[in-house]
């Protein structure tokens, strides 16, 4: 597996650097009513081609960790490298696509113009834009809604449009913050398997926040279980499921075993909270 990931690497020769490397990473927000520790002593290495899920109770720092990778928050301690660079340089290299927890579509732009936004900024030609818009809109099942405005779409459709927007410019790293939270089970299943196919085909690295244990186990090669206050990683579970994953893999004993371990990790996190 590691051999294929090296050959598919687009960034030249040599040893593949980890995509994300966090060492003793900490982040404390100082607010008016005292400091809030959002991350503390996070150690995590994400290799190229990994599909990493972050799972943990609300407020445990999942979004904060993703935002730190994206250089939208500055760590207050420890080190963080993205593709061997500082997060800032990686951002300026347009190393990642980010799907926010809310759709964040611009209401004055149609859906297709929203998806074109990163392409316009990155200087793609009109023809390239049209081709990519069509491809990504097909992928998230939004064809036919090109000329609609965001406020004419349901919440789930808006969220899918924001996924299409993040996919449109083909970054090697995808940061997705509960992208499927607002979707029904069937669409969610469909998008899960589409995402897996995309990941397998493009060898992208994906960081994926979710509250759903089955979703995390189904998608991931690595599951990071986090616990709140202070936000820390309690368990990192490597999944041995094959890359090729039909939907009914979710009934196999291997799958259920991993799911049980994730659940135990989450329980431990919750009881930890009560001790504090």
């Amino acid at each position: 597996m590691s051999v294929t990931s090296i050959t598919s690497s687009t960034t030249g020769t040599g040893v593949a650097l980890p995509v994300v490397k966090a060492e003793h990473l900490g982040l404390t927000f100082s607010t008016n009513d005292g400091d809030v520790v959002a991350l503390s002593d996070v150690n995590l290495t994400i290799e190229k081609g990994d599909f990493v899920s972050f799972i943990g109770p609300s407020g445990c720092g999942k979004t904060t960790f993703l935002r730190t990778i994206a250089d939208l928050e500055q760590p207050t301690s420890g080190t963080l490298e993205i593709n061997g660079q500082t997060p800032e340089n990686a951002r300026k290299d347009r190393a990642y696509g980010y799907v926010f927890q809310a759709p964040a579509l611009y209401p004055w732009r149609t859906i297709e113009k929203n998806i074109a936004l990163p392409l316009e900024i990155m200087g793609h030609s009109a023809q390239q834009q049209a081709e990519r818009i069509k491809r990504t809109m097909d992928l998230v099942n939004l064809s036919g809604f090109e000329k609609k405005f965001p406020w004419q779409l349901s919440g789930g459709m808006q969220q899918r449009a924001s996924i299409a927007r993040a996919l449109a410019f083909d970054a090697d790293l995808l940061l997705m913050d509960e992208p499927f939270g607002a979707l029904d089970e069937i669409v969610r299943d469909h998008l899960n398997s589409e995402l897996l196919k995309l990941w397998d085909r493009t060898k992208k690295t994906i960081c994926f926040v979710t509250h759903s244990i089955p979703e995390a186990v189904y998608l991931s090669t690595k599951i990071v279980v986090m616990s709140p206050r202070p936000g820390r990683v309690t368990d990192i579970i490597e999944s041995n499921l094959p890359r090729e994953r039909p939907l009914d893999i979710r009934e196999t004993p291997e799958f259920l075993a991993i799911a049980a371990r994730v659940r135990d990790g989450l329980r431990a996190g919750h009881s930890y909270e009560e001790v504090v």
Partner: peptide
């Protein structure tokens, strides 16, 4: 969040001004 989006694209000042 709309500004953060522009930041993730490493949009420059004028792009952010005109498009957002």
């Amino acid at each position: 969040i709309e500004r953060d989006l522009m930041r993730t694209y490493a949009a420059n000042y004028w792009q952010t001004l005109l498009k957002l």
